[in-house]
């Protein structure tokens, strides 16, 4: 019974639209996060002195701290970006598909 509904959802072109839009958005964001993160880890592992540079000329506080905090903040903002689109635009398409399939 529900398998029939799944079949109907599957045939709806909107389903493909939803999946491709949402997946490409999610994977793009993942690539950004993983890319930046592994660049960061590689710098830590292979060129640590790069991060130890002072922020201000003649100062002590290094750029490592704001870079670290910036990564944390940026990653959080990206999750917010995803929630915004997924809970709005994508979920609207989603409920439309489900409505169409159970009628």
């Amino acid at each position: 019974m529900s398998s029939e509904v799944y079949e109907r959802i599957r045939r709806n072109p909107k389903f493909d639209e939803l999946v491709s839009k949402r997946s490409s958005f999610a994977w793009t964001l993942t690539a950004v996060v993983l890319g930046l993160y592994f660049i960061f880890i590689m710098v830590v592992a292979f060129n640590p002195t790069l991060l130890a540079k002072p922020i201000w000329e003649g100062g002590v506080a290094s750029i490592a701290w704001p870079i670290g905090a910036g990564l944390i903040l940026l990653f959080w903002l990206l999750t917010g970006l995803y929630v915004r689109r997924a809970n709005g635009e994508f979920d609207d398409i989603n409920s439309e598909i489900i409505r169409g399939a159970i009628e």
Partner: peptide
């Protein structure tokens, strides 16, 4: 020092991943 914060970032970065790839 900063090694502690690196550790924090390593602990943290799983979360965006869980959001994009797994949560729904």
């Amino acid at each position: 020092g900063f090694d502690g914060y690196i550790y924090c970032i390593c602990f943290y970065v799983g979360w965006p991943f869980i959001m994009f790839i797994m949560a729904e």
